[in-house]
């Protein structure tokens, strides 16, 4: 099994689909040259420059172009350089990509993949560091996936491109150069399913994207104290794998959700609501969220460090949930 970086794994999934299917096209700013991070590097050379289309800085319109192309039978992959700029493409995503299959009574399909990278990494400040995934949970018709490791990045990319619906593929910039083994030819379908990364009996910690790492570190540290933590990587936010979460909570009776996005209105809220609907009476303590404070992302190192949840904050939450007992 080759070891790939997260970034290379995204390219590997993308390239595999592009080799297989001539209707897959990439659109984005600077993508022909690889983009600022190099994800699409070399694709134009291999498959032809017509397949990797450089666009002007017109996010809204480029999203519309990709949707129109998808309606005409292509399977476009649009790169939005930073998720912060998806604001400019919201109209096309929310009003057209998400709804055209429905509004047309099934006449139309939008097999579109939107690649965005998000998150805090490198003191870039509030316009290049956000995590905005939860907005898209609120738009029926869109799917949202967030890989936390190279193998999932590769598989989820393949799944996203093959899907007949618009899929938001959210990469974390802070993971780009993390390395791990990636099975050749993909590791099978990863979409729609959460992954139980570590089995445990005392507390379930469900994490998203880059927060999976501190969740695992916390589990490791807590094991030394005799606390058994089950770590679940959500991977897919829409659809959300509630079944895996509920099964885990039935066993552990406690749940903590960890994400880098701000706490209010985040994925944690949705997870908490969905889990309690099915497993309230299995819970021994309130569901907790470990998330960024309700603030824009600051720039200065001490502020930025404080903003991002870490292992210590997960450990503290686990202690808190274990200390809280039903009356």
């Amino acid at each position: 099994m080759p070891e790939l970086s997260y970034l290379e794994a995204i390219r590997s999934g993308l390239l595999a689909e592009m080799r297989d299917d001539p209707s897959v096209y990439v659109f984005g700013e600077d993508v022909a040259l690889g983009g600022p991070f190099g994800v699409t590097q070399g694709i134009a050379e291999e498959l032809g420059s017509h397949r990797v289309v450089n666009t002007p800085i017109s996010e809204g319109t480029v999203m519309g172009v990709a949707i129109g192309a998808a309606l005409s039978g292509l399977r476009p992959v649009v790169e939005i350089m930073f998720v912060d700029f998806i604001t400019l493409a919201m109209d096309q995503l929310v009003n057209h990509a998400a709804k055209l299959h429905y509004m047309s009574g099934g006449q139309l399909r939008v097999p579109l993949t939107v690649r965005v990278q998000c998150g805090v990494q490198g003191n870039m400040g509030a316009h290049h560091s956000q995590s905005l995934e939860s907005w898209f949970l609120h738009v029926p018709g869109l799917k949202v996936v967030m890989p936390s490791n190279p193998a999932d990045a590769d598989s989820l990319m393949r799944d996203a491109i093959r899907d007949d619906n618009p899929v938001l593929f959210v990469e974390h910039r802070g993971l780009y150069f993390t390395r791990a083994e990636v099975p050749e030819g993909g590791s099978g379908r990863a979409m729609d399913r959460a992954a139980v990364l570590r089995s445990g009996t005392d507390v379930t910690v469900a994490a998203v994207s880059r927060m999976v790492a501190p969740a695992r570190e916390a589990a490791e540290a807590l094991a030394a104290e005799g606390i058994s933590v089950e770590v679940v990587d959500l991977r897919s936010l829409v659809p959300l794998d509630v079944e895996t979460l509920v099964n885990s909570v039935r066993k552990t009776s406690r749940l903590i959700v960890v994400h880098e996005a701000v706490e209010q209105g985040g994925v944690g809220a949705e997870v908490a609501a969905r889990v309690q609907e099915q497993a309230l009476y299995y819970l021994d303590s309130p569901i907790l969220r470990v998330a960024a404070p309700n603030a824009p992302v600051p720039c200065a190192p001490p502020l930025e460090n404080f903003f991002v949840p870490d292992k210590e904050r997960v450990v503290a939450a686990v202690h808190r949930t274990l200390a809280s007992q039903p009356a």
Partner: peptide, 18 residues
Amino acid sequence: TASGVVGGTVPLALGAAF
């Protein structure tokens, strides 16, 4: 498609043309 968003279908037509 038609659309309730004024100007919204102009980019879509470019995609069809592409």
